[in-house]
């Protein structure tokens, strides 16, 4: 029942989300719901496609003769770096999704925010029926010390955001699969109780039972997906 209520509230906001103009807490709630609801994501994708089509109707106009030169002069100082494309794409996708779900997009949006929200939608759309999941990280005594995100796509990846660990240091990050295998996937540094880290993974997201962060002398932090 709660889900259909959430769907109804989210669908009210879908046109504004698709147009990139939704505001405030309602937008954050809707984005979080979209992370869980395939039907709402599909509807958002369809509405976005309609708006994209409408934008195509703007009539063409040639700018003034010096426009091309002016643009190319502006591009020279803005020359992009030669970063590895895959790493860039991964970092962007992870940052977009994590920012969206942790409230980084609340408030009146700028064009960059709208682009970010659009990338969020598009990143989810890339999965095309697969999914993005989020889970609280907790210890035996602390209900929430952060969040873990897992994205089923090409590539699939996980992203860890530790916000209030009781012990700082370097943690071993492990995937525990549904058939009880423990796979070390990297190290996450935590300073003053905070840290974030992500990586691409080979394991299908549906096969992950939990992600845990382990460090000698510190409580194990764990996020359950199964």
């Amino acid at each position: 029942m709660a889900e259909s209520q959430a769907c109804q509230e989210t669908r009210e906001l879908l046109p504004e989300l698709a147009a990139g103009v939704a505001e405030g807490g309602a937008r954050a709630v809707a984005l979080a719901h979209l992370g869980r609801c395939l039907d709402c994501r599909r509807e958002l994708s369809e509405i976005t496609a309609v708006l994209d089509d409408l934008v195509l109707l703007a009539p063409e106009h040639e700018p003034s003769p010096g426009f091309e030169t002016s643009v190319l002069n502006a591009l020279a100082p803005a020359r992009p770096g030669r970063r590895p494309l895959r790493a860039t794409a991964f970092a962007a996708a992870a940052a977009v999704l994590v920012a969206a779900l942790t409230g980084g997009l609340v408030g009146r949006q700028t064009s960059d925010d709208r682009q970010l929200a659009r990338q969020y939608r598009d990143t989810l759309a890339v999965a095309d029926g697969r999914y993005f999941v989020a889970a609280d990280i907790s210890t035996a005594v602390e209900p929430s010390t952060g969040h873990a995100f897992a994205y089923q796509g090409s590539p699939s990846w996980v992203f860890i955001s530790v916000e209030s660990a009781s012990s700082s240091g370097t943690y071993q990050v492990q995937l525990i699969t549904t058939d009880h295998r423990a796979i070390d996937i990297g190290l996450c540094g935590v300073t003053d109780g905070k840290g974030s880290w992500g990586t691409t993974i080979q394991v299908p997201i549906r096969d992950i039972s939990r992600i845990q962060l382990v460090r000698a002398g510190a409580p194990t932090m764990s996020a359950r997906f199964g």
Partner: peptide
């Protein structure tokens, strides 16, 4: 329009 091309240039890798 110029700003749009600059952004496209900066984000082409993404």
């Amino acid at each position: 329009a110029q700003e749009s091309f600059v952004k496209a240039w900066q984000h082409a890798a993404a």
